[in-house]
Simulated assay, not measured.
Amino acid sequence: MTRIKICGITRQEDAQAAVDAGADAIGFVFYAPSPRAIAIDRAWDIVRGLPPFVSSVGLFVNAEPDWVREVLATVPLDLLQFHGDETPDYCSQFGRPWMKAIRVRSSNDIERAFSVFAEARGLLVDAFDPALYGGTGRAFDWSLIPRQRPLPLVLAGGLDSVNVADAIRQVRPWAVDVSGGVESAKGIKSAEKIRAFINEVRSVGKTD
């Protein structure tokens, strides 16, 4: 079964909609330039209301270590997601499980990341944009993703209810990660779009 993360949560009602629809994980963006950035106290309010077995994930981009520690001092995140140019040593210093995101230009990018970030819990693959660290709203060429994967692979980038089932059939990822594809506006999720997305993910395997 493909796992599902709804990222860029900024409101309690959006987190609840994701939980009610069956999301496995909720993502919070601790990166000020993002339109989906969230304050520490608001993230804490949302995380403390999550039920058992729904994971909380914190996304950081080239953050100062003290900022990550400040977030962790208040918000009990289950997993850290590093979306910038972080090194393995940087990612490992916080005593929490972590996942590395990479922006894909070639299959070599993915092969190299599997080797360099071997201690990660997983590798997230996203579309490349020279000006953005994720959140592009664009898909990339999924044929670049290798079939042999030493780590669980999380597929992101331009996913929505229209294309996610085909993406899963083609890529067979461990999980999918969506943000803009389930929004009514940047940072504002649509409960209807969340339900449609998750229903499409769950449909794969029942008929395939």
Rank of each mutant, 00 (worst) to 15 (best):
M1W: 02
T2N: 01
R3M: 15
I6L: 15
C7F: 05
C7L: 03
R11E: 14
E13H: 15
D14G: 06
A15L: 06
A15C: 09
Q16K: 11
A17K: 03
V19I: 15
A21H: 13
A21I: 14
G22V: 13
G22T: 12
G27P: 14
F28L: 12
F30H: 13
Y31M: 09
A32K: 12
P33M: 09
A37L: 04
A37S: 14
I38M: 07
A39H: 11
I40Q: 08
D41C: 01
R42S: 07
A43Y: 12
D45I: 04
I46A: 06
V47Q: 05
G49Q: 11
L50R: 03
V54T: 07
V54P: 09
S55N: 13
S55P: 10
S56E: 12
L59W: 07
F60Q: 09
V61P: 12
V61K: 05
V61I: 11
V61A: 04
N62E: 04
E64V: 11
E64C: 04
R69A: 09
E70Q: 15
L72V: 10
L72Y: 05
T74I: 14
T74G: 00
V75G: 08
L77D: 07
L77K: 07
F82H: 02
F82R: 01
D85P: 01
D85H: 02
E86R: 02
P88L: 00
P88V: 00
D89G: 10
Q93V: 03
F94H: 08
F94R: 07
F94I: 12
G95V: 10
P97Y: 02
K100P: 08
K100D: 02
R103D: 09
V104Q: 00
V104N: 00
S107Y: 03
N108G: 00
D109Y: 00
I110D: 00
E111V: 10
E111H: 03
R112P: 00
V116I: 15
V116S: 01
A118F: 11
A120P: 14
R121F: 05
D126N: 06
A127R: 09
A127F: 10
F128L: 07
A131T: 14
A131P: 07
Y133G: 00
G134A: 02
T136I: 09
G137H: 03
G137A: 03
A139N: 08
D141A: 02
D141H: 04
D141G: 01
W142D: 08
W142Y: 09
L144P: 04
L144D: 00
I145S: 01
P146F: 02
Q148M: 07
R149F: 01
L151S: 09
L153N: 04
L159D: 07
D160Q: 09
D160G: 10
V164C: 11
D166K: 10
I168C: 07
R169L: 15
R169T: 14
Q170F: 14
Q170D: 14
Q170R: 15
R172Q: 15
R172M: 09
P173H: 04
P173I: 03
V176H: 03
V178E: 13
G180S: 14
E183V: 02
S184N: 07
A185P: 13
K186D: 06
K186N: 08
G187E: 06
G187V: 08
G187M: 04
K189V: 12
K189R: 06
A191L: 11
E192Q: 12
K193E: 14
K193A: 14
N199G: 09
E200K: 08
V201C: 10
R202P: 12
G205M: 05
K206H: 13
T207H: 06
